[in-house]
Simulated assay, not measured.
Amino acid sequence: MVVSSGERFERTMTRSMSPEHAVERHLKEREPEVFASTLQNNRYELKRFVEWTDEAGLDDISELDGFHIHDFKIHRCEEGGVNETTLPNNLSALRVFVSWLESMEVIDGDLSDKMQIPNPDSDARDTMIDAETAEEILDDLEKFEYGTLRHALFALLWDTGFRLGTVRALDLGDYHPDERYVEVVHRPDEVTPLKNQGEAEREVNLHEWVCEVLDDYVEVSRHDVTDDYGREPLLTTQHGRPVGTHLRQNINALTRPCHYAGECPHDRDQSECEAAGNYRELRREAFEMN
């Protein structure tokens, strides 16, 4: 069948729309399919893309091509201040959106399949513990420190991949147990600013088991205290919001084999090992502070 130039023009006009309008239609279609928190995350990620299209002069989403995707990626790296985790999140949400555009025949081809999502692995992440070790630590916490500060801290870090500073900055009101997510908010000029400031603001889903740990921590172990700014921290000590060094010391202790596995990687006698003694002291302090 021969398609006339008039028919091609009419088809092009019917599929032409602004990036903002296309994103709104995409999110509207996803609304009944995903959790509200997931939809909010997608909206946040795609908001950055829509803002970029305004700067780049991409007024019609049907003109989107691989060069635009590449330019957006460069923009986010050079001007967006994103880290190795945020960029993949941005691009993953964008790829789902691009796939939707293809399904609606707004754009042609298989652009979504050709999108390259950066691998979040980096030198910093090479030092992270593996899943098997994390399970051992969580089992140890489940048995001996259930619902304590350290249990809640490690569960949050493992499930979200947050920096310690981000977890420390969470307020009680940032945790939404019914919807199962935490809201990361940049609060400038205070004691808990985020490293990437406004760019780091987001909502992150939590697994149900993490929410169970947090719920029990809040009910049983969390101290009803405020910090120097009158805010209610999610994680607390008897004196208010824990300092970063305190949280780091506890994570360092939790990730030592002599702590969670009960055996020394250097075949030392734990009763004579100063480091092991320090870790046991931290565990004792963890109970006292809870």
Rank of each mutant, 00 (worst) to 15 (best):
L170E: 06
H259Q: 13
G173N: 15
Q249T: 07
M1H: 13
E142H: 07
G262A: 09
L164N: 13
L235Y: 01
S92F: 00
D139F: 08
G81A: 04
G262S: 06
F9P: 08
D126K: 15
Y175I: 06
I107C: 02
H239K: 15
P32S: 03
Q270R: 13
E232Y: 05
T192C: 10
V2E: 11
T160S: 05
F49D: 02
S271W: 02
P19V: 07
D139I: 09
L282N: 10
L58F: 04
R231N: 11
F67T: 15
L64M: 02
D108H: 04
F72R: 01
P265E: 00
L164V: 15
I74L: 12
R163L: 06
E199N: 08
V23W: 07
L170A: 07
T236L: 06
C264K: 01
E263I: 13
T127Q: 10
V23M: 12
Q249N: 14
I69H: 01
H207E: 11
D178H: 13
E79Y: 12
S112Q: 06
E84S: 07
Q270D: 10
L153S: 01
E281T: 11
S221N: 12
D126G: 09
V82G: 01
D189R: 14
L87E: 03
A200M: 09
S103C: 08
E203P: 11
L282E: 10
L27A: 11
